[in-house]
Every structure is written in structure tokens, then in C-alpha cells.
Amino acid sequence: MNRPSTFLYSVLCFGFAVLYIPVFVLMAYSFNDSRLPTVWGGFSTRWYSALLENEQILQAALLSLEIALVSATFATILGTMAGLALSRVGRFRGRSVLTGMIAAPLVMPDVITGLSLLLLFVSLQELLGWPGNRGANTITLAHITFSMAYVAVIVQARLANMDQSLEEAAMDLGGRPFAVTRDITLPLIAPAMASGWLLAFTLSLDDLVIASFTSGAGASTLPMVIFSKVKLGVTPEINALTTLVIAAVTIGVLISGWFMLRQLRAQPAPP
């Protein structure tokens, strides 16, 4: 193989620098003793302890995690069902329309999704007296609605790539349809479901616009709190919070990477 040229190396370094220097600067300033975000005043961890005492941020973080966990789980269940229906139930009326519609939320601007869901919740409240006060419940419902589409698309892509004779073979060997789904289809699409869940979880944690529309008084997710705080100026506390989030994400990526590596090592190349 040819040695990569110096030029290619510099382009690579530049690319990574553009991506990561802002993140590293932000992380460094979270250890800044000074109250001003741009003036270095010595090393300190005081913003982290301040963060731990900030009830508002802690509660918002907990709420976000709760919403993300619940919505990712439900989105995975519903999205998997939709993906299975679209790729395995053969031809049925309106199949192509449904295929298009399931992908639409992926390209829909958040503002429109948020606004339409808000209007839905308001009219439901008037008609049925449900869902009551808007808050964590309505945000969760909204997040399930849009992240379900992502899961469905991922699962459907996996199913499209899967050899359908695997399921036929199981049926041929005496497996009834339910047993075939349980024994063959689900284990084989489990990786797709896992990545769908992770994506749904991340999307929910990250979402600001839809949550702002569908939330009511009192329920604020972490992005909502950060956004409202930043409007008053970036405090080192926010830097500390972001650093913690980045650390959590990094650990998550490392763990899943380690799992994947272990899986690869367990399967030596065929002879």
C-alpha cells in the first residue's frame, strides 16, 4: 500500500480539529475557576459541585432520562411492529402509501411536528378530557410518535437484507408463525432494534423544539433548561453539565464498541 501523503494527513487533522476543538475548549473551561466563560482563572471543580446543588438542572436531567427511556422503549416496540408489517405481511392495500408515510416524520421539520402534536393534544383535551395537564406524558407521547419512524426504517432495512428463506426454513421445520418470529426473526433483527432504541433514546434526549411545544407548565427537559439558561449568558455551570453529558456519551460509545469488538473476535474468519 502507498503511504498516505502529507497533504491527506493535514486535511484529516484539520477536519478533526474543526470538529473537536470547540468541544475540548468547552470541556477545559468547565474547570475554570473564573465566573467569566472566556477568561481563565485557574483550575477548579467548583462548577461541578454547584451543578450537583442545582435542583432545577438535576430534576430536568432526571425528567429527560425518564422520558428518553420510556419513549425509546415504546418507539422500539411500535417501530419494530411497523417494520415487520411493511416487509413481511406481503402485499396489502395501501402498503406503498404506508411506507411513504412511515418515513415522512424523518424529514418533517420539528416545528411542524411539534405544533401539530400540540394542536392534537389540545383538541383531544377538549373532546375527551385527556391527556390532562401537558407535561412529561405529552412529551413522551410526542417523542414516541416521531422516533418510532426511525426505528421502523432501521428494522425494515434489516429485514429487507435478511434472507427470507430463513423464516421459511423454520416454518418448514414445524415452527408456527408466532414461533418463527420469536425464534428466528426477532433474534436476527435484535441488533437493528438495539440501534433503533439507542437512536430513539438520543433523539429524545436531544429534542428541544418538539418538547417545548408539547410541554406544559412545570415540566422542563434538560435541553429546555439549558436553552433558557444560555439565553441569559453561558455560565461555567452549563460547561460542566455539557462535559458530563459528553463523558456519558463517550463511555456509552466505548462500551458498545467493546461489545462489537468482542463479538468480532469470537467469530474467526471461515476457513
Partner: peptide, 18 residues
């Protein structure tokens, strides 16, 4: 298929990978 006294060997073999 699951009630027929017939079994099939598939062209792709369809060996369950998991």
C-alpha cells in the same frame, strides 16, 4: 408448511446464523 410431512433444503441453505 408446518403441518406437511415434507422438509426442504433451500438453495441458500438458510442455516440459522444465530
Amino acid at each position: 408448511p408446518y403441518l406437511r410431512p415434507v422438509n426442504m433444503m433451500f438453495q441458500s441453505y438458510a442455516v440459522f446464523p444465530h
